[in-house]
Design a binder for these strands. Structure first.
Lengths: 243, 243
DNA sequence: CATAAAAGATGAATAACCTTCATGTATGGA
DNA sequence: TCCATACATGAAGGTTATTCATCTTTTATG
């Protein structure tokens, strides 16, 4: 089982190392291409060329194009999770942590949306999705949120009226959707607005700043209206025909 | 311009009618297939077979496979919008309307998720998405929500701390995401839970019930003014057609 | 060191599929 | 009746994913 190394060091040349290095090359070339061209316009031939192997070699490492895409996404999620956890660990209170997670997620999506569009194509139909590596990766990622959210709940910082899984879906779903809007608006400044508003929504109303007075509510409506005016230039009015 | 009909009625046989009927056949066959098999596994040959035409004929009606997919989605959104508006019109208060919109959206997604996964594939990259027919369809659909939400805001039923576009993205985004979770859980009963929780989140705390003070009227006047300004500013409509 | 077995890599061949186009056919007016 | 036009066809062409017989490199063994 355990292979003994020769006295002569071959630092980069064990079989295993070479194979792993090759797999990484293929993966990174694939990721590059998927992110540039999307799934359909990415060709195995070009991936092979960029990673310096023959076409057939790709199939020694990945069963097919879809499996390759899955491999890329698994790596992506691993990085995402790691960065998220690291950021969370560097902060001390739940609200800041949630805000960080939101901003980090939104910005990452914005930077990699084309890669993420590959996700539905990986032919993980509902039958084989559960239990797949990709599903596990996704769960690992959202688990970072879950832990922070549970802390938030126990500290009465988060709203508690809803199930955790619902809150999680609202959190991530809202951002996936919001990212598209922000891209269409072509104004990355909206990231902050979006995160702020999302946080307002999920955080528990604070006692002190709580407004029971109708006046405060009205004032807020006015402020919102003014905000609408500010963004009116970049936002087009929805036109609708009643038919 | 106006073609005069022959004295002899040919009820189903004008050239135009036949062509339109054929287009519908192709569209419905395509929709069926996309919904069954997804984009990648759907073949033009099979669509042609199911609609009783030759392969090449499909290309007389749609520029290519992607355009066909877009056509299917445009039809889908048209139906969705119509059903949403109809349901809203049948109800009388904003909260019920929002709840209906949520339930309707969630259930429709659950029934057609495979078709909707085709959306990212239609190669409407961000460059040509804005102004496309599909974008317009999407805007028409969300406009139904926008109108209801505006009503809700003016009645102090909805939370007002956030911009409307953010609220919209949270609303739809949360459901798109939630649909996947519900499918994985394989329990459609969760639809109601999800909608309930989502509603709790976006509805204003019930303490601040309706206030019929003069201030309310003033605020409404201001909001109306802002709306006028909004529509006035955004009359720079760059219309582009993508097909 | 020689040699064989195993593992890894190759790229031409195959198959599937989208798309085009030269050819054929129906339609509707003159 | 006849022609111009619009419409339909399906075989052929081009692109790509995928396979596999063959070749090369590596490792284990005497």
């Amino acid at each position: 089982m355990a292979s003994v190394k020769d006295r002569t060091t071959k630092p980069r040349n064990t079989r295993r190392e070479r194979v792993e290095h090759r797999e990484e090359k293929i993966l990174s070339a694939a990721r590059e291409m998927f992110n540039e061209c999307g799934y359909g316009k990415t060709t195995i031939a070009e991936i092979a060329r960029r990673s310096g192997v023959a076409d057939g070699t790709v199939y020694l490492y990945f069963h097919n194009k879809e499996a390759l895409a899955r491999g890329v996404l698994v790596h992506f999620y691993a990085e995402l999770t790691q960065a998220a956890q690291k950021g969370v660990d560097a902060l001390s209170n739940s609200e800041e942590r949630l805000r960080f997670l939101a901003t980090h997620h939104l910005q990452t999506i914005l930077a990699h949306w084309r890669l993420l569009e590959v996700l539905p194509l990986t032919d993980l139909t509902m039958d084989n999705y559960e239990g797949s590596t990709l599903h596990q990766m996704h769960k690992d990622y959202t688990a970072v949120f879950d832990r922070v959210a549970k802390d938030g709940v126990s500290q009465n910082i988060l709203r508690t009226e809803m199930a955790l899984w619902v809150l999680r879906d609202i959190f991530f779903g809202a951002m996936d959707y919001g990212a598209r809007t922000i891209m269409i608006k072509r104004q990355n400044g909206h990231v902050e607005t979006f995160v702020d508003d999302l946080m307002k929504l999920i955080l528990a109303p604070t006692e002190t700043a709580n407004i029971s007075t109708p006046l405060e509510a009205l004032t807020q409506r006015m402020e919102t209206a003014v905000e609408r005016l500010e963004t009116a230039t970049s936002d087009k009015a929805p036109s609708m025909s009643t038919s």
